[in-house]
Write a protein that binds this DNA or RNA. Structure first.
Length: 440
RNA sequence: GUGGGUGUAGCUCAGCGGUUAGAGCAGUGGACUGUGGAUCCACGGGUCGGGGGUUCAAAUCCCCUCACCCACCCCA
């Protein structure tokens, strides 16, 4: 048996149907706020992520699927999408517009050990708002993050789910060096107590020590200098204005001084959306501002930006947990011919019905699904219908043809009603009326 | 990358050195030739994840490997 590679998934019904539905909800919601779909390649040049995500980040250091193509180009399966979007904006010369809004949904790849809600191929969705340096853009992103999740949860009748937005500001090129220096001076005193990873981070990426989950490092971090205390005036105003806007809109957030994010391109605002599942904290989404990202990719450009990215698999995990619905409310109807003779005459009813379904497809979609069978006995047709968990069976057999009728039976209630075969051409078009008459 | 757990029928699992590897559910056929879900009977179905080793004898013990689950790390 050849199995799928580690950390990948086959999405089969009903999971695939749930995903399809979520994707539809995401795109329809984001379009209302002016975000438009952007699609970028699944593989990019390695350099893109080394420059943007940062070559001291775990993602670039040990999680990228890197390969050379036949001409020896260094390529990588994308580990995230923000860098690609900014690259596309530069390459397609879209940067004169100050309100570039994009959303995306697609696979990302990270070489990690699989875990609950974590895979090597994952699906990430998110939005990017480019060209607007104002705190208003940060607000819009956080507002949309929260409300997109609300919109989706509401659609699945999930109420009262606890999700928390953690937020922090990590400053800009003016104030962050000073803050990093202060952090270094603080942590260097505890160098021997820090975990091995953090001892390396002390020189490579001191901010990330704050993010360490090791209890010793955490305790040391408790008294570490906080970035919000070292912000320059511009960053401070930006952050305070943002927080005020959030408060005025009743968006619940907690200021998290240890939130720094693992990707190097962030500045000022960083945030994460967390929820609780079985006493475990799950990160649903993360994002922030990345005004330097364009410059990392091409130093001729400075394009402000901010956005968020969420994981589709983690979202379905939550939805399945709170609302484990198996069916998606499609009314399933079996059209069955009951005949041992199988003379050609009987097929004309089946064929005209199929043709009618085809011409009324627009009317029927999202509400009905049709199945067809030819059975020797009504008993076996019913057995089939029962096994397939269908809602209705419409059947025509010798007896029906003799009496010039067809039968509709509600398999959930057992109710059955006969209709004139002369009406069979109206069956599909007026399916609602027929079912109403039966169920009345 | 580190640590723990698990791989036996389509599914859930039992068996943990000793006949020809089992159960429940699912499947197929029949009782039952036009009104389903029940019951009864019968039947089919397995490289015991893969490879190697120990042994008279391995699903069972040991080693390697692959995969899955969970946690750490990190992140979506």
């Amino acid at each position: 048996m050849i199995e799928r590679p580690r950390g990948t998934n086959d999405f089969i019904p009903p999971e695939s149907i749930l995903r399809e539905k979520i994707i539809k909800l995401i795109s329809e919601y984001l379009k209302i706020f002016g975000y438009k779909l952007i699609e970028t390649p699944i593989f990019e040049k390695s350099e893109l992520f080394k420059r943007s995500v940062g070559d001291t980040s775990d993602i670039v250091l040990k999680e990228m699927y890197e390969f050379k193509d036949k001409k020896g180009r260094d390529l990588v399966l994308r580990p995230e999408l923000t860098a690609s979007v900014v690259r596309a904006v530069i390459q397609n010369r879209l940067y004169n517009n100050n309100h570039l809004k994009f959303y995306y949904i697609g696979p990302i790849f990270r070489y990690e050990r699989p875990q609950l809600g974590r895979f090597r191929q994952a699906t990430q969705f998110g939005i990017e708002y480019l060209g607007n340096p104002s705190f208003l853009a940060d607000f819009e992103i956080i507002f949309l993050t929260q409300n997109l999740y609300r919109y989706i949860f509401n659609n699945f009748n999930i109420k009262n789910i606890e999700f928390k937005i953690h937020i922090n500001s990590i400053g800009c090129n003016n104030c962050r060096p000073n803050y990093k220096q202060k952090l270094y001076e603080y942590f260097v005193n505890y160098e021997k107590d820090l975990c091995q990873d953090c001892q390396k981070r002390l020189n490579s990426n001191v901010l990330r020590i704050l993010d360490c989950k090791n209890m010793v490092c955490r305790n040391i971090s408790l008294n570490a200098p906080k970035s919000v205390d070292y912000l320059c005036l511009e960053c401070k105003n930006h952050f305070e204005n943002l927080l005020n806007l959030l408060k005025m809109n009743n968006i619940n957030f907690v200021i998290d001084n240890y939130l720094v994010r693992g990707l190097d391109y962030y500045n000022r605002t960083v945030f994460e959306v967390k929820t609780i599942l079985d006493n475990n904290t799950i990160d649903l989404a993360g994002g922030g501002r990345y005004d330097y990202l364009a410059n990392f990719i091409d130093n001729n450009y400075n394009i402000a930006g901010c956005g968020f990215a969420g994981g589709l698999e983690r979202l379905t995990l939550i939805i399945n947990n709170y609302n484990p619905q198996k069916s998606f409310n499609m009314i399933k109807i079996l059209f069955s011919l009951i005949s041992e003779q199988k003379g050609l005459g009987i097929f004309k009813y089946l064929l005209s019905t199929i043709e009618n379904i085809n011409t009324n497809a627009n009317l029927l979609k999202d509400n009905y699904s049709f199945y067809f069978s030819i059975d020797n006995s009504l008993k076996s047709a019913l057995k089939l219908a029962n096994n397939m968990d269908l809602d209705y069976i419409i059947f025509i057999g010798e007896q029906e043809i003799e009496k010039n009728i067809f039968q509709i039976k509600n398999l959930k209630t057992g109710k059955q009603k006969e209709f004139s075969l002369n009406e069979i051409n109206l069956l599909v078009k007026n399916i609602n009326d027929f079912l109403d008459k039966l169920n009345r």
